[in-house]
Amino acid sequence: MQPVDSFLFLLVGAALFCIGLTVVLLKRHAIVVLMGIELMLNAVNINLVAFSQYDPDRIQGQMLALFVIVVAAAESAVALAILIQVYRHFRTAQLDELTELNQ
C-alpha cells in the first residue's frame, strides 16, 4: 500500500483552517462562530497528526492533538454556557446585535 503524501494532509488542514476562519469572520450566529472555531482546531489537529506519523515512538503530535481535543471540549462547554447567559441577558445570539463595545 502506498501511503498518502503528507503534503496533502497539510493542504487539507490549511484549507479547513481558512474555511473555519471565514466562518468565524462572517457568520452572525454565535453558535456558528463556535463551530468555526472547532473547525480551526480540527485543522490544527490534522496538521499535528500528519507530522506525528514520522515520530512513532513518542507520537508527540498525537498527544498534543489529544490535549487539543480535550481542551476544545472544555472550551465549547464554557462558551455555550456563556452563550446561554448572554442569550438570557440580551435575548439574542446574533453577534451583530451584541454591540455593547460600541457604546
Binding site: 498518502v4 503528507s6 489537529n45 490534522i46 500528519a50 498525537q62
Partner: peptide, 11 residues
C-alpha cells in the same frame, strides 16, 4: 477518517 489514514486510530 483522515486521522485513521495518518495512522492515528485512537485519536
Amino acid at each position: 477518517g483522515l486521522f485513521v489514514l495518518s495512522s492515528a486510530d485512537f485519536l
